[in-house]
Design a binder for these strands. Structure first.
Length: 573
RNA sequence: CGGGGUAUGGCGCAGUCUGGUAGCGCACCUGCUUUGGGAGCAGGGUGUCGGGAGUUCAAAUCUCUCUACCCCGACCA
């Protein structure tokens, strides 16, 4: 391909709205252009990368025994109504009507449609198990699209769904998909980690996320440097820390105006880890006007993990903080002076707060706190404890392997168990060997294709531009023809190399523009094609061209006739 | 949705406080010179100053309002 035949609008300046490397470089390099918030046009260069990622995903899934299908983006409301999700999906799902006033949605995911497709076509255990996937545009009206392709409203996802007669069969496919995702990311050439994850609204079963490691990632991952253990911080179990203090006497002190842990700790001259904070959230039961409340109690230096707290029985899910007015109506004290001593609502205490022998807490009277409080003596034995905090760097890993460390990642894949949620609600049953009807167990496997393109750039770039891994580069080889419009020899040599290398099966981009060399070199670095050949009069006087790899600065002078073997040696087909 | 911010040529920005009829760099077009890391000179085109309403002799600038976009939080591939 010739540069002049492709629309590659490189930019010297980044658009002001782009903040992270992938967004800036993909825009500057002419790979993508924004259409609206969270939606992007893919230009020729960008589309070539996207197709390469797709092809790898497709090949690895096919190899792992999954079958590709394609389902519609615009879907009728009925399957969603049957599963009950038409009402629970909320504004994230875009809805529309056709000319007959019938309801439709833009597909944010495919559980309903694939389950009904499966149910209508598979009847016998002899046809089981099945593992169906497709690669398709998804639309989610995100609360806040951001970071370019990273969190877009319209994006391309590979979503797969497996159906099984029993758990054992499901486990087998789950393991196969786990291995498949690792193979995909390894082939692309990414540094990644599979971590234990929170299955979110999808259930309580096994769940793993695949993260591309990058400092700009939105997720924090906890891992053990000395074992295989790794988990999303949202999910990672937090140990109950021991307390070395001694029991003190309870006394009430005035703390006027001190509302935060930092205020109280500063005023009383104690460490924040010796204070506890009491957060009031809605409990199950109660009415809209007068919701039932429950108090979540944590050490002052710890952060509440909302997902963990919401999973504790009795706590309303999703977690909902009580409004100040509700707190004052029920407890007759303002937030800031609440504490567990004498509090008339149920307490749910984090493990590390429950082990404190002596602590500072709100006195349930505005402007007062207790010091020297003790659980058994001042609150009573009947408290519930649970792990409801975020782990912190340095906490012990649950597998006993030592202190956890943190890193950041970009979630490009998520696999989890769906159980029989959809086969039950959509009445899909398969006959087993004895003729009995069984609701199949489902697994669900998502991979963000467009997000993955952004993740590659986040991990593979330098100050000058993108550094594509061979596997997903838009082209294998970038020929920079220096002063090609002036030098016939340069033009002819570049054309010949272009032709020969293409015949060898490499994809080649020839920069044949009438631009100064500096412009071409800068664009070549920006666009990031991994192998570059520079053809110029300077080298051709000695019968050589220059070869360098995008990732390394060293330049190799190569006789024109040796170009093909040189490339073949460093870029095996 | 809560909080913060931005909107001026294709891109990046100044001008807004203190109203006087729009400017800079890059990009683009023409010509000449130049040509191995984002060239120089000369000439040229390019704007509903986000939309609407208002104040005023006069509005990019002041007022009201709407919209779009970005950043921080809850959500997710």
């Amino acid at each position: 391909m010739r540069f002049t035949d492709l629309l590659i609008p490189t930019l010297r300046d980044a658009p002001a709205d782009a903040e992270i490397a992938s967004h800036i470089l993909l825009t500057r390099g002419g790979f993508i252009r924004r259409l609206a918030s969270g939606s992007y046009n893919w230009l020729p260069l960008g589309l070539r990368v996207l197709r390469k990622v797709e092809a790898i995903v497709r090949e690895e899934l096919d190899r792992a025994g999954a079958e590709e299908i394609l389902m519609p983006v615009v879907q009728p409301a009925e399957p969603w109504q049957r599963s009950g999700r038409w009402d629970v999906m909320g504004p994230e799902m875009v809805r529309l009507k056709d000319r007959h006033d019938r309801d439709y949605c833009l597909s944010p995911t495919q559980e309903e449609v694939v389950t009904e497709l499966f149910g209508g076509t598979v009847k016998s255990y002899r046809q089981m198990p099945r593992n169906l996937y497709h690669i398709q545009t998804k639309f989610r009206d995100e609360i806040r699209p951001r970071f370019g392709l990273m969190r877009a409203r319209e994006f391309i996802m590979k979503d797969g769904y497996s159906f099984h007669m029993d758990e054992a069969s499901f486990e087998e496919t789950y393991a196969a998909m786990h291995a498949c995702y690792s193979a995909i990311l390894s082939r692309i050439g990414l540094d990644f980690r599979a971590v234990e994850a929170d299955p979110g609204a999808m259930g309580d079963g096994d769940s793993h996320e695949f993260h591309v490691l990058a400092d700009t990632g939105e997720d924090r991952l906890a891992y053990s440097p000395t074992s295989d253990y790794a988990a999303n911080v949202e999910r990672a179990a937090a140990p109950a820390l021991a307390d070395d203090a001694s029991i003190e006497t309870l006394s009430r002190v005035a703390t006027p105006g001190a509302r935060t842990i930092a205020d109280v700790a500063g005023l009383l001259g104690v460490e924040s880890r010796r204070c506890i904070k009491t957060l009031i959230v809605h409990a199950d039961g109660g009415s809209d006007e007068r919701p039932a409340l429950v108090a979540l109690v944590l050490r002052g230096d710890h952060q509440l993990n909302e997902a963990k707290a919401a999973r504790v029985p009795g706590v309303k899910r999703p977690l909902n903080f009580a409004a100040d007015a509700e707190i004052e109506a029920s407890l007759r004290v303002q937030a800031g002076s609440i504490g567990p001593v004498g509090l008339p609502i149920p307490l749910l205490v984090d493990g590390s707060a429950a082990t404190l022998k002596s602590f500072v807490c709100g006195a349930n009277q505005d402007g007062y706190h207790y010091t020297g409080a003790n659980w058994a003596r001042d609150v009573g034995e009947a408290i519930r404890t649970a792990d409801i905090r975020n782990v912190e760097e340095g906490d012990a890993a649950v597998d006993g392997s030592g202190a956890l460390r943190f890193m950041r990642g970009i979630e490009v894949g998520h696999i989890f168990k769906l159980g029989t949620k959809y086969t039950d609600s959509l009445n899909v049953a398969i006959q087993d060997a004895k003729g009995a009807e069984v609701a199949p167990v489902m697994g669900c496997y998502g991979f963000g294709v467009t997000r993955c393109v952004a993740a590659v750039v986040e991990q593979c770039h330098d100050a000058d531009g993108i550094v594509w891994p061979d596997a997903v580069a838009p082209f294998d080889i970038h020929i920079v023809a220096v002063n090609n419009t002036k030098s016939e020899q340069v033009r002819d040599t570049a054309d010949t190399l272009h032709r020969t290398l293409s015949h060898e099966g490499f994809s080649v981009l020839l920069d044949d523009r009438d631009e100064r060399p500096g412009v071409k070199f800068a664009d070549a670095d920006l666009v990031g094609i991994p192998h570059r050949i520079t053809v110029g009069d300077r080298g051709l006087r000695d019968g050589v061209v220059e070869y360098r790899r995008r990732e390394a600065p060293d330049v190799q002078r190569v006789p024109v006739a040796e170009v093909t073997p040189t490339i073949r040696a460093s870029l095996p087909r």
